[in-house]
């Protein structure tokens, strides 16, 4: 569905991506794993037109437009990480903003019902300002807002950032649900273990390059990936060095 070939991104003199190629088949969940600064968010921002890039991106067999609003119109929607909801608008208005490209009366109501069904909490809070929502609710709103445009594919950036461990699982489960409704997903999340568990396929990024790729389950069992991104193996290690525990995301 989405094919990124040889993408380069730089911010002034600093290169963030050094020729990355990623393939996201229709209907699948593909995850990007890597430390902070590996280039995951740069990749998503470049695809969604926020950051200029070199290289080619094809979407549904055609070259992807370069300007954000044209990309959204094609059904490819970027869910920015949770704090980029419109805090000055109500929850309902945020959802309506998401429906900007699908502004037909009947369609809006149908989509709204669908989103409320998926996130009943948003319905309860419809008339509240989005700035009053909790972290988990903001994330639901960010995803719900993206669904209002009836996307064919979502780029989901750090949905579990800053959430309590219980909520992390819930939010990622919701992403699986969205995927089961037929939306292709490209996921970036700091919780590498959980995102590999739900991903059909995954890429490991390191300093702007892809260093490993494979089915999610395979990477979960890969020793190098475990040591680098999953807090090491639980078994005793040969060199006796104790990997940090408790925080799975950092290394």
């Amino acid at each position: 569905m989405l094919k990124v070939e040889n993408m380069h991104v730089s911010y002034g003199a600093v290169k963030a991506l050094h020729g990355i190629s990623v393939d996201v088949p229709a209907g699948k969940i593909v995850a990007l794993v890597g430390a902070n600064g590996a280039g995951k968010t740069s990749l998503l921002s470049a695809i969604s037109g926020l950051v200029p890039y070199e290289g080619t991106v094809t979407y549904a067999g055609e070259p992807l437009p370069k300007r954000s609003h044209e990309i959204v119109a094609k059904g490819l929607v970027h869910v920015p990480e949770g704090r980029r909801i419109f805090a000055n608008l109500t929850v309902y208005e945020n959802l309506m903003a998401g429906a900007y490209t699908k502004w037909e009366k009947n369609g809006i109501q149908e989509n709204l019902d669908r989103v409320y069904q998926l996130f009943p909490r948003l319905k309860d809070r419809a008339s509240q300002y989005a700035g009053t929502l909790s972290g988990g609710e903001r994330q639901m709103l960010a995803i719900g807002r993206a669904l209002m445009s009836r996307p064919r594919m979502l780029l989901v950036d750090e949905p579990s950032l800053g959430l309590a461990p219980l909520l992390v699982s819930q939010v990622l489960d919701l992403i699986v649900q969205v995927n089961q409704q037929g939306v292709t997903i490209l996921l970036v999340d700091q919780n590498a273990r959980k995102s590999l568990q739900i991903a059909d396929y995954a890429y490991v990024l390191q300093q702007g390059r892809i260093v490993k790729e494979g089915p999610g389950q395979e990477l979960l069992n890969d020793e190098a990936v475990q040591i680098a991104y999953l807090g090491g193996r639980k078994k005793q290690s040969d060199n006796g060095a104790d990997p940090p525990t408790g925080r799975e995301d950092d290394c």
Partner: peptide, 11 residues
């Protein structure tokens, strides 16, 4: 409020 986030809505 946030013009980049607005662009991501297709605005």
């Amino acid at each position: 409020y946030d013009s980049r986030a607005a662009q991501l809505m297709g605005i």
